[in-house]
Amino acid sequence: MADTDGRDPGPRPPDHGPGAWVPLGAATAVTVLLVTVWPLLNAALPDTEPVRSGQALRVGSEGGYDAALTFERGGWELHPAASTADRSYLFSRGPVELTVRSVVPVEETPPSATELWHGLGRIVRTEDPDARLGDPRPVAADAGAPGLTGPLSGDEDGVAALYPSPDGVFAVQLVLSGPDATPADLAAVEDVVRSIAFSEGGSA
């Protein structure tokens, strides 16, 4: 640095020149590794695990109630990577996919089943802009829980159902569909949707 007035030029700031390659390389490498290693490790593990037939599987727990599904037929598989305990689950059996979501409305007064049905209609449209839920009709689960069911159309046709918990704190949404599933495939396993049962003892 040219010093025109003859004063002490003072300290030079640290120019991070050649030494900066190390932190630059390390920061870039860490970022690239984190977005590649975990997905690759995930891909190396099996995508599904079998669901034992006859087993009741908890799919939601809020307020004073648990909700469980029972898979009477064999051949169902759980996709753990696409599932989160007590919130959302993806099951499949051949070409049929069953998506189960447990939703917890935040309103002080719990919404009606019809309002929950409209909410489900919006949720399915976030994934498929063409998805539409048909008019619902009342349905009762095998264990007696009242709910609504109706047809789903869009990229994938299917069947949707919705069961509020007895205290209205949460509701279970079930969607049966699959890109290659035929109406006959869906009809053959539709009983799993009606297997939903609520029992007391959920997380407060």
């Binding site: 939703v103 409305p105 919404p111 909410g119 489900l120 949720i123 509701a171 949404q173």
Partner: peptide, 8 residues
Amino acid sequence: TRAGATDP
């Protein structure tokens, strides 16, 4: 989504 989309 978690709240059921009844009052987004």
